[in-house]
Structures are given as structure tokens and as C-alpha cells.
């Protein structure tokens, strides 16, 4: 049973549908809906000014090679005439297409580029898959990526981190502490709890990961101690839809849509396919369902578009070819 308004399935106790088939998240949104409080580009400009740096770089842009982060990098350099430091992190499973997009973007824009590649997370990913843990790979990865990003920002004395998050990936600006992956949101409650439980247990038994943060909240509290830093996304403030900025980066930055993707028309790493497979198996939905549901509620996406884009149609062979790198084979 899927909510009649968004694309979240019933997943008790976190998500439940009422008699009309509407989920508790949509009902809560209707109740909270504020009349006309649209964010404006000038709000973004004010925030950039408020956190302006005196150092070499104005902002650190988390760049995955996807359309949202590549266009965010473009905006920071071209629209706001800032000096960004592009930052890409590869845990060993990034796609060649994504890396090509990043390479093209930083070359065309002439921005400094910080590339970080490691297999540090491999054992942890392997453990999740092998034990069939309900922890979300993407959640773990984002905890680590954010922690690393905050560390890099502190290292280079950069007070603004720019992410390519869409309006579906965050509810309120400008603080990262309110980003989508919060345990307190019903859609993420079980996922976040499983991730925390997994980390709690796994970190204790693996000295390699003794410094790994146990939650996004911990990432934030660590960052707060390090320096004053804000995380923003231009997409929260600009009215341009993805069709518009995809055209722009294709033309200006030689950006290409990857051959293989989930959800449709997105750019994600290879592990994403396993993460999607696992979370669908464990919860019946993924964080993409949450993001798209939010976009539907904001009127930026239709339910039909979201359902089409979220169709899981990648083959088992793909999962096995990725799984084999972690020493795992999915049963037929």
C-alpha cells in the first residue's frame, strides 16, 4: 500500500496510512504548511555574505559528479563569482561517468580540486552486506562523507560548505543539523536507528573505526567544536528546475548523464544499487522515496514522475558484480 499523495509505502510503526490512504508524513505536512514562505535567491546571497571567509577559498563544494552538485559548483563559481574548492570523495565505488563529470567541471571552471580516495570503508560495507544488517549503506557513507567534509573545511579555513541538495533532501535552511537524515523524522527513524545500532556494536569490535562518528548528530557536534561552518545548497533558493540546470551544465561543463543510474536520471555510486536493494528489502522504500515524496508535497514533482523514476529495474548480475568486490554473492 502506497500513500495516495506521495510515494511512501506503509511501513509501521513509522509510516502508516489513514482511511483515505494518505500517510502520516503527508498529513503532518498539510498541518504544518505555512502560507507562502518561499526562499529567495537573495536569502542565499545574505547567507553567503554572513559567513564570508577571509581565507583563500570562499566555499567548499561537495561534488559527486551528479547534476545537482555539478550545477551547485557552477553556480558558486559563475553565478556568485566565488572561489570554491571542489571536493570529491571516492570510497572505491564511484562510477567512471561521475568522475569524468567532476573532472570536466573543475577543468572548465578552473577551480581548485581536492580529491580523496580510500578503501577505508570497505570492511564496514562488507560487514553490512554479509550480516544482512538493516543499517543503510548510504546513511553510513553520508555520515563519513560529511565528517570528512567538515574536517576539510576546517583544515582550509572555509566557513561555507555547499552541497547540491535538492528541496527534497532537506526541509529547512540553512543548517545541516536539519538535513534529511534525522532520526526524528518518521521516514528515517528506523533506518537511522538501525545504522546507529550497527555502528554502536561494530565500532566497539573494530579498532580501525574507533573514531568513526556514530550518527549525523555526532558529526555535527564534532564540527561545531572545530569551527563555525554552515552547509547550504543553492537549489534550496533558486527557482530553476533540474531540466534547466541539466541543460546548462551539459552545454557549459560537458556534463553527461550516466549510462547506469538509480533513480532514473541521477548519478550515484555503484554501492548505491546494493543500498537500494537492501533498503527496499528491509523497509520497502529508500531515502530516494523520502526525497521524492518531499518534492511531491512541495509541488515540484508529480507522483507519476516519482513512481516511474523509482522503478527498480537493475539486474541481479549488476548487484553480484559489485558484491563480488566485497566478497559477497546475492542469492538467485
Amino acid at each position: 500500500m502506497i500513500c495516495k499523495k506521495c510515494v511512501l509505502p506503509e511501513s509501521k510503526p513509522d509510516i502508516w496510512l489513514n482511511e483515505e490512504g494518505i500517510c502520516n508524513v503527508c498529513l503532518g505536512h498539510e498541518k504544518e504548511k505555512q502560507p507562502r514562505n518561499k526562499t529567495l535567491e537573495t536569502d542565499f546571497i545574505k547567507l553567503l555574505k554572513m559567513y564570508k571567509s577571509s581565507g583563500k577559498y570562499d566555499c567548499l563544494v561537495m561534488c559527486s559528479g551528479g547534476k545537482d552538485s555539478t550545477s551547485a559548483l557552477y553556480y558558486m563559481k559563475k553565478r556568485y563569482k566565488l572561489n570554491p574548492l571542489a571536493f570529491t570523495f571516492d570510497h572505491g565505488f564511484e562510477t567512471e561517468d561521475a568522475m569524468e563529470n567532476v573532472k570536466n567541471a573543475v577543468e572548465v571552471l578552473g577551480v581548485d580540486f581536492l580529491f580523496f580516495k580510500t578503501e577505508f570503508m570497505k570492511d564496514m560495507f562488507s560487514e553490512i552486506i554479509k550480516t544482512q544488517s538493516k543499517a543503510s549503506i548510504c546513511h553510513l557513507c553520508s555520515i563519513w562523507y560529511m565528517d570528512l567534509t567538515f574536517k576539510m573545511a576546517a583544515k582550509f579555513n572555509i566557513p561555507i560548505i555547499i552541497a547540491g541538495w535538492t528541496k527534497g533532501q532537506s526541509t529547512k535552511q540553512p543548517l545541516m543539523s536539519r538535513c534529511g537524515c534525522s532520526m526524528h523524522q518518521p521516514e528515517f527513524h528506523s533506518m537511522a536507528k538501525s545504522t546507529n545500532d550497527f555502528l554502536d556494536k561494530y565500532i566497539k569490535s573494530n579498532p580501525k573505526y574507533k573514531d568513526f562518528p556514530k550518527s549525523m548528530e555526532e558529526v555535527l557536534s564534532r564540527a561545531k567544536i572545530r569551527q563555525k561552518c554552515v552547509v547550504l545548497s543553492p537549489h534550496w533558493f533558486l527557482p530553476f528546475d533540474p531540466e534547466t540546470y541539466v541543460e546548462m551544465i551539459k552545454k557549459e561543463l560537458k556534463w553527461k548523464l550516466p549510462k547506469l543510474s538509480y533513480p532514473e536520471n541521477s548519478t550515484n555510486c555503484y554501492l548505491n544499487f546494493i543500498s537500494v536493494y537492501n533498503t527496499m528489502r528491509d523497509y520497502g522504500y529508500t531515502h530516494y522515496h523520502v526525497e521524492m515524496s518531499k518534492l511531491i508535497r512541495e509541488g515540484l514533482l508529480t507522483r507519476e514522475e516519482a513512481l516511474k523514476s523509482l522503478e527498480v529495474n537493475f539486474p541481479k548480475e549488476l548487484l553480484n558484480s559489485i558484491g563480488s568486490r566485497l566478497g559477497y554473492r546475492f542469492s538467485d
Binding site: K38, L40, E41, T42, R79, F240
Partner: peptide, 17 residues
């Protein structure tokens, strides 16, 4: 007219700068 200004800049395909 902050909304109207935002619209005018974005429609004109220029930036505030």
C-alpha cells in the same frame, strides 16, 4: 519588492553581481 527583484534578475538571465 524583494520577490519582484529576484524574479527580474532570474528572468533576465543575469546575476545580482
Amino acid at each position: 519588492p524583494v520577490n519582484a527583484i529576484n524574479y527580474c534578475i532570474q528572468e533576465s538571465n543575469i546575476t545580482f553581481l
